[in-house]
């Protein structure tokens, strides 16, 4: 069971430091989204980031700019690979995240890994470009496991690079 005293303390401390928003957001629980359509941006598909820096087990990691859920890198998977025994949900929501290491913006697909109960580790919620439920492809509030063979049971979320913004 999560230690809520720690959560409260972290939340309260974070609220006081309004400039440090991410540590506040990372513990806000909510669900997940994804949609097949990429945003209407010029993208080079299928590329990986040239240079990476940061910790994929940290909510501050650059690819997580629009994620909402448990980080698979903390759950037996990696930043882009689902943990053993889970089913990747092919339909996702996408975000556009800036990689400070190489100065480029990338299209990130947030696929849910499904078929088990919640991983419960590294809960992370960041909402850069997140939109309401009536714009599903940009909304991280859906449980996208609905599109997997496992149906709804949500375990964690990966962050796959599917393109680079070229302009």
């Amino acid at each position: 069971m999560p230690n809520y005293d720690d959560v409260i303390e972290r939340m309260t401390r974070s609220l006081a430091k309004t400039t440090v928003r991410r540590s506040l957001l990372r513990t806000l629980g909510s669900l997940l989204v994804g949609a097949a359509a990429l945003p209407l941006l010029p993208v080079a598909r299928g590329q990986s980031a040239g240079k990476e820096s940061g910790d994929p087990a940290s909510c501050d990691y650059w690819r997580y700019c629009a994620i909402d859920g448990f980080l698979c890198a903390c759950c037996g998977g990696t930043v882009s690979v689902c943990p053993p025994g889970t089913e990747p949900a092919p339909v996702t929501w996408v975000g556009t995240c800036h990689n400070a290491a190489d100065g480029h913006d990338y299209i990130v697909s947030y696929n849910d890994c499904c078929g088990k109960s919640s991983c419960g580790r590294c809960l992370c919620n960041r909402n850069e470009g997140d939109r309401p439920l009536y714009m599903p492809g940009k909304s991280n509030d859906y449980n996208w496991c609905v599109g997997s063979q496992a149906n709804l049971p949500y375990h964690c979320t990966v962050s796959r690079i599917v393109g680079m913004v070229t302009e």
Partner: peptide
């Protein structure tokens, strides 16, 4: 209400 920039539409209220 809270003080925040764009994309803070789910931030808690102060």
């Amino acid at each position: 209400m809270h003080q925040g920039g764009p994309d803070t539409h789910k931030d808690p209220g102060a």
